[in-house]
Design a binder for these strands. Structure first.
Length: 136
DNA sequence: GCCAACGTTGGC
DNA sequence: GCCAACGTTGGC
């Protein structure tokens, strides 16, 4: 199956891209939203992921990669929830602010802009590539 | 700090 | 099964 593209949101005070780089890889767990959970479950090893810092920074700051596909979330005994493992790939040379994405013709319809509360979302390849280009 | 959006819960 | 109340998230 073709590689897919995703965007993860995180509050940098809680867990940042820098934390991910230091940790090498991390379990992305604790997701308790069905839509986000369904997205986690659809991820495949090697899928590319953009990391967005919410609240204080409000910018896409880097790229990560799925290194382990969905497995039961270790932070709960509830079988409904899953986690994936991510590894950092690189930081964007230039973070791409939310305001810039809102103003961009290709990006203004992505879930990050449309549905601000969703924490794990799919991105069309064109949107992924556009953000990476803006961040270069 | 405020509040809009939205998901969840619980009474009926 | 509906919907009002409530809690949380995250932009402004």
């Amino acid at each position: 199956m073709a590689k897919r593209y995703w965007l993860f949101k995180s509050e940098p005070d809680v867990f940042s891209l820098e934390d991910l780089r230091k940790a090498k890889r991390t379990a992305w767990d604790g997701v308790r939203n069905y839509q986000a959970r369904n997205n986690l479950a659809a991820m495949q090893k090697g899928d590319r992921v953009l990391v967005y810092h919410s609240v204080k920074e409000q910018a896409v700051v880097g790229i990560a990669e799925v290194v382990r596909e969905a497995y039961p979330d270790p932070t709960t005994g509830d079988a409904r929830w899953v986690a994936v493992d991510l590894a950092a790939v690189k930081a964007l040379p230039r973070p791409v602010p939310l305001a810039e994405m809102k103003a961009d013709r290709i990006l203004r319809d992505i879930p990050l802009v449309r549905q601000s509360r969703l924490s794990v979302m799919p991105l069309p390849k064109a949107a992924f590539d556009r953000i990476v280009a803006l961040g270069t």
